[in-house]
Amino acid sequence: MDVLTVTLNPALDRELIVENLEVDRLHRVKNPKYSVMQPGGKGVNVSIILSGLQVPSLAIGFIGGFIGTVVEERLREVSPLISTSFVHVEEETRENITIVDPINDTMTEINSVGPSITEEDLEMFMRRFRIGLKRSRIVVISGSAPPGVPDDFYATLSEEARAEGKVVIVEAVGPLFEKAVESGAVSIAKPDLRGAQELFGQELVELEDYQGAAEEIVSRGSLMAVVSFHIEGDVIATSEGTWLLSTKEQVERSHLLGTGDSLIAGAVHHLLITPDDYFGAAKHAMAAAIAESAYVEKMIITDEDVIRFEDFFTIKKLR
């Protein structure tokens, strides 16, 4: 197994395509294809996209109840390249509802919290995480954490993974992310800025703010920072410099679903083939994200898709 993906708070993603969405109104989904139910959660999504790139992965985390069972079974049905070893918890796994309105180019998301995690659940998870580490080269720790998971948990996981000599990729938000970065054990750090545009207590408004945030992450010990700048760009920072990677064509907001996870999967794919080439991983990641943005729905992109989009962005050196 090359990759271990950690999703502490997986979800059943329900994606609906509704034209002219309005609150306080009845809407009917016109076509069964416009109502999709699939396993989700950021780490789970990375496993799914990796399978399209022919990379085997082991998905671990917490799962619970009827919804959890559906998520786990559907995930394994996606591809024989995905193995699972989730810790089953008492309460029900959450659902994430996304309503895409292609007419008004909007994406409305409603995410629930997730099950409560006990001390015993955490202990069981840690043991399975350590075993998974031994069998993988890259660890992806991504997404939110359900109630009961301490704020320093991603930092703990990152430190254990780095101590085993693994490449550690973290995408999250808030204290979970910041403490992981502060541990200095993260190889690639990507703040999830879909909610508040804020990092380390600083609001991110101008390009300089995003550049500052990326450089701050690197100064705290990460080998590379990836900070999304509006829809069409990513600020990339390493110890060697800072760059802005921007798409040549405008990306529609309704096409953003899964692009962040494709970006991570693209980086993983590159690092498995070319270890230590982090800037190359950033470029491959960008191409993967643009390939994903070619579709409205969450698609399993292939290596050919990624290669096709390698030329679809510009690189500007900021530092």
Binding site: I82, S83, T84, S85
Partner: peptide, 10 residues
């Protein structure tokens, strides 16, 4: 390998 379930729960 064509009929197995890749569940490594143990």
């Amino acid at each position: 390998r064509e009929a197995m379930i890749r569940d490594v729960s143990a």
